[in-house]
Structures are given as structure tokens and as C-alpha cells.
Amino acid sequence: MENSVISRQPASRPDKRAKKTRDFHRLSPFWNAAAHLVIGLFSLACVYPFLFVVVISLTDEKTLALNGYSIFPEKWSFQAYQYIFQTGDQLLRSYGVTILITVVGTLLTVAIVSLYAYAISRPYFKFRGLFSFIAFFTMLFGGGLVPSYIVVSQVLHLKDTIWALILPMSVSAFSILIMRTFFKTMVPDAIIESGKIDGAGEFRVFLYLILPISLPGLATIGLFAALGYWNDWFNALLYIDNAKLLPLQSLLMKIETNIQFILQNSAIGSGTDRSAIAQSMPAETTRMAMVVLATLPIIFAYPFFQRYFVQGLTIGSVKE
């Protein structure tokens, strides 16, 4: 992306077909427009459902039941949002939990993963093979749900703590793999050698020479990790009983699964019990409003993330 930044100024382009143009950093206007069109349409298609969800959340409950989903509802209503803000200190709490686990978890993941990946990317590391195996073998085999649950709840005693939402996902062999390849291919050996000659220790080389030029890689695994933490609901399902520690996605997921469970399970109590439970569930517009409120921060946070992302990349290129 930043190559386009660097090459902002020169814009002389005599040949429209761009076959022999001198400026290789920019596309011809035609292809540029085509790229805009393709990517623009695709991203529009990606945003559209979200708009759709916003519209449903603003539709009058009764209108929704009568007419079904429509992008131009007959009657609008803010009732869903009113309802959430009246009763929803849970939503606010869950925001807090999600943000906390995302921030702490991402930092932890990036730290552990980059250290591990760096070590196994060094050709002179004697135990490289062993530790690569230790990491990558886990991508293929798992012990299953119950044994993992026992480790977290009974060995580490993490149940109903915030750490049960962070630690089980804090390392991924997948990210280690990406970072290892990154270090291997993107970090010139010359840099490490120069560091070595200066007499810098391994950690020093890593911290002051490698990390700064590895920001694109770090940003990538950081982003993956952050999204993983933000979207996780399964760990909460397993390890969290206390509503005060429920993350956002788990809150949303719970509402969906509850409603499906009640509607599909005809054996629950009598018909009257079922009606009573169904009554206590949030209405569809309310559910959509919660989706909107849960997704909105990401839309605003992502550009920031992206800025660091791009910044990291720029630093990388300046070094060259």
C-alpha cells in the first residue's frame, strides 16, 4: 500500500495501455478504475448484510413479524435500542471483558509466538527440529473436548476466571508457522550476522534488529489473534458460569442458541412452560440491535488497527 504513497507525485502517463510506462508503482487509470470497481463492489456486498442487520434492528417488531425481513420496512422503531440500554448493563460489562481479553491475549500471543518462531527459524539452533515438531504436531492431533476441559478446570483451576478465556487460545501453531516463514524469508541473514558481529546477544538481536523489521508479520498474527479473541465464544461456553465474565460474542451466541433450543425442543415442559420461556427471550429486533452494538466497535477499531499495520509496513520499507 505504501508504495502508492511514496509514488504520489509523478503522474505523467502518456500510454493508456500502460505497456511501457515508466512509473511502475501506479496502475493506469483504466485498470485502477477496474480495481476500484471489483474491490468496491465486493466490499459493498460485504457491508450490505450489516446494513441489513441494522435495518432489522430498527424495524418495528410487529412489522417484522408481518412482513418478514425487508430493507425498507414500513415502520421504523428505536424500541430495541431503548430496551437494551434500559436493561443492558450486561452488554457494557461484556464489552469490558471482550476488550480486556483481546488486548491482553493479543499481546501475550504475539510475544510467545514471535519468540518461539524466531528460535525455530534460526538454522544454527540445535534443537530446531524437535521444537518445530512439538509445535506443528499439535495442529493435527488434539485430545478432545473433555480432556482439555479437565486440564483447564482441574489442573490449572482457571474455571470462571478471565484467564480461561485467554490462555487456552494464547498460542497457535498456525501463527508460529507463519512467523517462522516470515523470519526465514523476509529477514535477511545479513542483519542477524551483522548483529552477531557487533557482539549482540540473541535477545538483543531479536528485540532491536528483528522485531522492528518484522512488524508486518507481527501485525498479521496480532490481527489474527485479536480477531480470534474477539470472536471466541466457545471457551466462555465451557469455562464461564459467572455472567460477569461473559464476553460479547458469547452473549450473542447464547441468545441465538437459547432461542433455537426453545423453538426446536418440543419436549420442554408443557406448551405453557415453553410459551413462558419463549416470552422471556429477547425479540428478534433486540437480537439484531445487539449484533449491531457488538460489531460497531470493530468497524471503528479496524482502521486504527490498519494504521498500525500500514505503519509497521512503512517502517519495514524505510529500512531497506
Binding site: L145, V146, S153, L238, T257, N258, F261
Partner: peptide, 16 residues
């Protein structure tokens, strides 16, 4: 919660 109960209790019980 309703939708979670079966899965959660099965894991809790099976894990002892």
C-alpha cells in the same frame, strides 16, 4: 442457560 445446559453439564459430569 437453556441452550448451553446439555453440553456444559455433559462436559462437567464426564470430566468429574
Amino acid at each position: 442457560d437453556w441452550g448451553d445446559y446439555s453440553q456444559k453439564m455433559q462436559v462437567i459430569a464426564a470430566s468429574g
